[in-house]
Design a protein around this nucleic acid. Structure first.
Length: 423
DNA sequence: AAGCTCGGCAACCGCAATATG
DNA sequence: TCATATTGCGGTTGCCGAGCT
């Protein structure tokens, strides 16, 4: 695993790119496409190292890049994803279409982080900075809330990383699964794509394995709960993660949009528990309220998550698994963000979910919906969102509550269904 | 008007993972 | 299997413009 000798620094230009250089790089890529970055500068006549060219392309010149001000929805998404994923900018960027990881990173460091800090929120933990004081209150709601939130966040990061690894394995087996499905479809005399899709969500359970874990995940919009039965092989268990926590929700409650009375249990899984779980034929399930079901895990390998949502059929991107997972986690926020200002795929997907769910957001959802309303009005009342309105919006602590509720509401819903204000 | 400070952002640096021979 | 090349990613730097004194 040798390190790249990077570029020979001698004779290579550094610093800002000139329009001429941009043109040369663009022209070359348009003509020859993307290939070896190392060889590109010489071929394109650029006095730059390949790495610099790649960065310039990926962060600036790429045609599918959206530049300019971040929308409220994007900000909200970034904050929530950061709470879940930490500084994994590339992972965050995959859920903000047309935004680069560098741009998101910069925006976080220059805007969002400061804003959170101003609000008294630790931008690292996404918890109030006086949380330490709160945790000293024995048996306090906040105390349990914080711990559970931390557990959830930790688990989400772990699961997300695992899904990424799994996605890689998915790619390897994808062709195999597709050929199998084709065979099965032919054998069944299937002539409809719907049937094929159905097959894809069923049969892959048989053929393909999820080598990294079993995830039995149950979630609701507004309560994206993860139930992770982590049955990765014994050797795979990270020493830093001695055990996982399982958030279990009685699925029978899901038929009620109003989840205020739902009972969530958090079970700590002993490490030994892994051995009791079937290592093969993994079935990952994320149930969405009102019947929207995302079946993930092995099924992702045949084209991603399958949602029973009408809009859910996905062409089968390689990283659909994680995307679906994160999308679900974001259900809550996107619902809050309003429907007429969706700018990225995640939002639209979640909006679909929210439509299916009948708009029942649950306890925390009420608050978010009201916040949403504010946001929508801001956007619908005028095509140009004034900075004044935005400032007012940011000053509204409910806005931040709605963001932070993503974590807190999932870990410790209020027994009475009321939102417990963070501030 | 000049100097200073600060914020924003493009770009660089270096590590790690992956691909290739 | 190992060494090397390539790519991806996150942290950091430094330039530049705006605002303030």
């Amino acid at each position: 695993m040798g390190r790249s000798p990077c570029c020979d620094k001698v004779g290579l230009k550094k610093g800002p790119w000139t329009p001429e250089e941009d043109q040369m790089l663009l022209a070359y890529i348009e003509e020859h496409g993307l290939g070896s970055w190392r060889a590109l500068p010489a071929k394109a006549g650029l006095q730059r190292c390949g790495k610099s060219c790649r960065l310039r392309w990926t962060n600036y010149l790429r045609p599918d890049i959206k530049r300019g001000k971040f929308s409220l929805q994007e900000e909200q998404t970034i904050i929530q994803l950061h709470a879940l994923l930490g500084n994994r900018w590339s992972a965050i960027a995959t859920h903000l279409q047309k935004r680069t990881d560098n741009e998101i990173k910069n925006y976080w460091n220059t805007h969002l982080k400061k804003r959170l800090t101003k609000m008294g929120i630790d931008p690292v933990t996404h918890k109030p900075k006086n949380d330490a004081l709160l945790t000293t209150q024995a048996g306090s709601h906040y105390s349990n809330n914080s711990k559970s939130a931390a557990n959830l966040s930790h688990m989400a990061q772990w699961e997300s990383a695992r899904l990424e690894a799994e996605a890689r394995l998915v790619r390897q087996s994808k062709l195999r699964s597709h050929s199998l499905l084709a065979t099965l479809a032919a054998a069944a005399g299937s002539t409809s794509s719907a049937t094929a899709t159905s097959l894809s969500s069923i049969n892959v359970h048989v053929d393909l394995e999820s080598p990294t874990s079993t995830l039995s995940t149950t979630a609701l919009p507004g309560n994206p709960i993860i139930s992770s039965s982590h049955d990765h092989h014994e050797d795979d268990r990270s020493p830093s993660i001695p055990h996982m926590f399982e958030f279990i929700k009685d699925i029978s409650h899901h038929q009620h949009d109003d989840d205020e009375s739902d009972d969530w249990t958090v079970c700590q899984l002993a490490a030994d528990h892994h051995s009791s779980i079937n290592d093969h034929n993994h079935h990952h399930h994320i149930a969405v309220a009102s019947g929207g079901t995302i079946s993930c895990g092995s099924s992702m390998e045949a084209g991603g998550w399958t949602l029973n949502n009408k809009e859910s059929s996905n062409g089968g991107g390689d990283d659909v698994a994680e995307e679906g997972f994160i999308s679900l986690l974001l259900c809550d926020s996107s619902t809050a963000a309003g429907g007429d200002h969706q700018e990225h795929g995640c939002s639209s997907e979640v909006n679909n979910s929210s439509e299916v769910s009948g708009g029942g957001g649950g306890g925390s959802g009420n608050d978010k919906n009201s916040t949403n309303k504010d946001s929508s009005e801001n956007h619908s009342g005028s095509t140009t969102t004034t900075t004044e309105n935005e400032h007012e919006y940011y000053e509204d602590k409910n806005y931040w509550n709605s963001i932070l509720n993503l974590v807190d509401s999932t870990s410790s819903p209020s027994p009475d269904g009321d939102d417990t204000p963070m501030f």
